[in-house]
């Protein structure tokens, strides 16, 4: 009789005893949590668990692969754009610094303007700039860059102006060849080069000779670079030379220009 009762008591108390052991052991582990022995044991346990868990770590990585790829592609695009923007900012900085230097040294009273539009209609080449009457602009004002002559203002609004550029059939500038001192007038017949008229065939025009404005047209101040001679043709029995010049300004890459508000009597040579 005592046997089954004793067995039942043992079975009843077994879980309680086990729980007591578990609780005591748990608190003992908590109390020794920071000890070296515990840390070492835990490190080994962690190594084993890490070894077992390692193959499973591939699963979340694989599941996240698509989103990770997308995120990286997005970041790559962002970085590329940022890099382009930084390069562009650097180039702009260099360009603006050069323009600033030019503005200070030119001797002209200049007004800076941004090119906001181009009119690439054949034969009618003009650009739109972002300053106008409010900035004291009038028609027939010379427009230049640090490289040379661009053209002149032809229409002026309150806050914008149309600039007729040198490579336009209806615009010519009085120029001077710096070496042979011959005077002429530019004209344009298409392409990216200018032609000179009224240069006498006796003039000793040389290739590479600089061409500047002479100021004789009453619009463009004297001394502004126009270009350099790239070709000279003597057409017998004509009394004039056919001179081709490469403009100093690249008209396809105009971004900032200056409008000459007024100029001093003596204009420095470029």
């Amino acid at each position: 009789m005592a046997g089954p009762v004793s067995k039942l008591r043992t079975q009843t108390f077994q879980p309680w005893i086990a729980l007591l052991f578990a609780v005591i052991l748990s608190f003992a582990l908590m109390a020794t949590d920071k000890t070296t022995a515990n840390s070492v044991a835990r490190q080994h346990a962690f190594d084993i668990i890490a070894f077992v868990a390692k193959p499973f770590s591939v699963i979340p990585a694989a599941l996240h692969l698509a989103s990770e790829n997308e995120r990286l592609r997005f970041e790559n695009t962002q970085l590329r754009l940022a890099s382009i923007a930084a390069e562009e900012a650097m180039r702009e900085n260099v360009r603006l610094q050069r323009l600033l230097d030019f503005r200070e040294k030119s001797g002209f009273r200049l007004k800076a303007a941004q090119v906001i539009a181009r009119q690439p209609v054949p034969g009618v080449n003009s650009i739109l700039i972002d300053i106008g009457r409010e900035d004291n602009l009038t028609t027939d004002m010379a427009v230049i860059t640090d490289h040379g002559l661009v053209g002149k203002t032809v229409q002026v609004g309150d806050h914008s102006a149309v600039v007729q550029v040198l490579i336009d059939r209806n615009l010519g500038a009085a120029v001077l060849l710096t070496k042979c001192r011959a005077n002429g007038v530019t004209y344009w017949e298409g392409g990216y080069h200018l032609l000179l008229e009224n240069i006498p065939s006796t003039a000793a025009v040389r290739l590479g000779e600089q061409v500047i404005t002479s100021g004789m047209d009453g619009i463009f101040p004297a001394g502004i670079a126009v270009g350099e001679v790239t070709q000279v043709d003597k057409n017998e029995p004509s009394l004039f030379l056919q001179v081709e010049i490469q403009p100093a300004v690249n008209f396809t890459r105009l971004e900032e220009v200056f409008v000459v508000l007024d100029s001093p009597e003596i204009i420095p040579s470029p």
Partner: peptide
Amino acid sequence: DSAGSGMIGVGSLTYAL
């Protein structure tokens, strides 16, 4: 507990209870 960075013994106490 061994796999985590928490205090060792807390998990064993909790799950045993």
